[in-house]
Design a binder for these strands. Structure first.
Lengths: 121, 121
DNA sequence: ACTGTTGTCAACCGGTAGGTTAAATAGCAG
DNA sequence: CTGCTATTTAACCTACCGGTTGACAACAGT
């Protein structure tokens, strides 16, 4: 199983069934059997999906009598949003600067662009 | 290969190496060999990663002499952000309403909410 | 016309993801 | 204690994923 949290979250949401579960859990908590009902897979398969979501920190389970309601934990979304926004912004900034650059030299001279960088995580 | 775009994007970003490539491409376009340099995998492996990113719509390639610079396409990020924000908001709305509910009945009467779990005592 | 560089394609391999069935665990109702 | 319901665990199977090596295509430079 993927070591880093970001990989776990992205990987968890890469499955349509799991995304659908998240969508339904955003509306209301639900038990495993309730969650399994709409899909034509076994309850065990759904239980596995739930484990993936839980390992990704997307859901939590609380013991309530013999049932174990599943609850959506929305905070983890921030992890993704922050990652995405970071690079989206960076890319947009690039375009902006490229625009400026092109506008500032209609003669086509190459002004030796900044040196390459190493990559962050 | 995953049919729906959302699965493809999430799946593509579930790999740390691919996320790192995206991070570097946010800074500047790069060729396959340049991209491969920091990692201790073969160029072929990187080429495969690139194909995944491309199928997800995250990068595009433009033919330039014998090189094929890779370019980050940031628009696809919106697809994810929209999905995430939608359910995050929905979940937060749920909490808000639950708060209101609890605040609105200090007598402890149960107004028969939807046949839900977690009935407060 | 060769040679070197850049990149892809094909075949293969080990590991893991997602599904199944069958058995085990946990709690509630008689 | 027995049985019913809800859920997880175990064992297994198949398919895909990420990596490899080896061969090949396209182009630049000499």
């Amino acid at each position: 199983m993927a070591a880093d949290p970001l990989s776990r979250v992205f990987s968890a949401l890469a499955d349509p069934t799991r995304r659908d579960m998240v969508a339904r859990l955003a509306v209301a908590d639900a038990t495993v059997n309730e969650l399994a009902e709409p899909y034509d897979v076994t309850v065990q398969a759904v239980s596995k999906h739930l484990k993936v979501l839980q390992d990704a920190g997307l859901v939590s389970r609380t013991r309530e009598a013999q049932r174990r309601p599943v609850h959506l934990e929305a905070e983890v979304f921030d992890l993704m949003t922050r990652w995405i926004e970071r690079y989206r912004r960076q890319a947009e900034e690039r375009y902006r600067r490229l625009d400026d650059l092109l506008r500032s030299m209609p003669d086509g001279t190459e002004p030796t662009p900044p040196p390459q960088t190493g990559a962050p995580t």
